[in-house]
Lab assay of single mutants.
Amino acid sequence: NQESVVAAVLIPINTALTVGMMTTRVVSPTGIPAEDIPRLISMQVNQVVPMGTTLMPDMVKGYAP
């Protein structure tokens, strides 16, 4: 099972992602793959992401799977 990126904290809208904001977990449905965390650093979320929420591609500005 592939791990997906999950919010480790509440991430406010338009916040640039940092390593500490993200964790990984096997979830269903799957979100952004864990191995993409290095690509996500400094990208901004386009909505509020509650802690424990799986990051989906459409939540991150400029992210393309």
Rank of each mutant, 00 (worst) to 15 (best):
N1M: 10
N1A: 14
N1P: 10
Q2H: 10
Q2A: 15
Q2N: 10
Q2G: 15
Q2M: 11
E3I: 09
E3F: 09
E3L: 15
E3K: 11
E3H: 12
E3M: 14
S4R: 02
V5C: 03
V5N: 01
V5F: 01
V5G: 01
V6I: 13
V6Q: 05
V6K: 02
A7S: 11
A8Q: 10
A8N: 06
A8K: 10
V9C: 03
V9K: 15
V9H: 11
V9P: 00
V9A: 12
V9W: 04
L10D: 06
L10R: 08
L10C: 04
L10Q: 15
I11K: 00
I11S: 00
I11M: 06
I11D: 00
I11Y: 00
I11P: 00
P12M: 13
P12G: 10
P12C: 03
I13R: 08
I13G: 08
I13F: 12
I13M: 12
I13L: 13
N14H: 15
N14S: 12
N14L: 07
T15N: 06
T15F: 05
T15Q: 10
A16N: 13
A16Y: 13
A16Q: 12
L17D: 00
T18S: 06
T18C: 03
V19Y: 10
V19P: 09
V19K: 14
V19N: 14
G20I: 09
G20E: 11
G20D: 14
G20H: 06
G20S: 12
M21C: 03
M21K: 03
M21T: 04
M22K: 01
M22P: 01
M22Q: 01
M22A: 01
T23K: 13
T23R: 10
T23P: 01
T23W: 12
T24D: 02
T24N: 10
T24K: 15
T24F: 10
T24I: 07
R25K: 10
R25H: 10
V26K: 14
V26L: 12
V26S: 11
V27S: 14
V27M: 14
S28E: 12
S28H: 15
P29Q: 06
P29Y: 07
P29M: 04
P29G: 05
T30C: 03
G31D: 01
G31F: 02
G31P: 00
G31E: 02
G31Q: 03
G31K: 02
I32R: 00
I32K: 00
I32C: 03
I32G: 00
P33Y: 13
P33V: 06
P33E: 04
P33T: 08
P33R: 09
P33H: 11
A34K: 10
A34E: 05
A34C: 03
A34D: 05
E35T: 14
E35N: 14
E35G: 15
E35H: 08
D36G: 14
D36W: 04
D36Y: 10
D36S: 09
D36H: 14
I37A: 13
I37P: 00
I37G: 03
P38A: 15
P38H: 15
P38D: 15
R39I: 08
R39V: 09
R39M: 11
R39E: 06
L40S: 00
L40P: 00
I41R: 08
I41L: 15
I41H: 04
I41M: 07
S42D: 15
S42C: 03
S42N: 11
S42Y: 05
S42T: 10
S42F: 14
S42I: 03
M43R: 10
M43A: 14
M43Q: 11
M43K: 07
M43N: 04
Q44V: 12
Q44H: 10
Q44N: 13
Q44F: 15
Q44Y: 11
Q44D: 12
Q44A: 13
V45E: 01
V45A: 07
V45C: 03
V45Q: 01
V45W: 01
N46R: 09
N46C: 03
N46F: 04
Q47R: 12
Q47F: 04
Q47H: 07
Q47I: 15
V48G: 13
V48W: 13
V48E: 09
V49P: 00
V49D: 01
V49S: 02
P50I: 06
P50C: 04
P50S: 10
P50A: 13
P50V: 14
M51R: 15
M51G: 13
M51S: 07
M51P: 06
M51I: 11
M51Q: 10
M51A: 11
G52F: 07
G52W: 08
T53K: 07
T53L: 09
T53H: 09
T53A: 14
T53G: 06
T54P: 05
T54D: 01
T54H: 02
L55N: 01
L55M: 10
L55S: 01
M56V: 11
M56K: 09
M56F: 11
M56A: 06
M56H: 12
M56G: 06
P57R: 11
P57C: 04
P57M: 06
P57V: 10
D58R: 12
D58S: 14
D58Y: 15
M59A: 06
V60K: 01
V60Q: 01
V60C: 02
V60H: 01
K61M: 07
K61N: 13
G62P: 08
G62R: 08
G62A: 05
G62S: 09
G62Q: 11
G62D: 13
Y63P: 04
Y63S: 03
Y63L: 07
A64S: 15
A64Q: 08
A64I: 06
P65M: 12
P65R: 02
P65Q: 13
P65T: 13
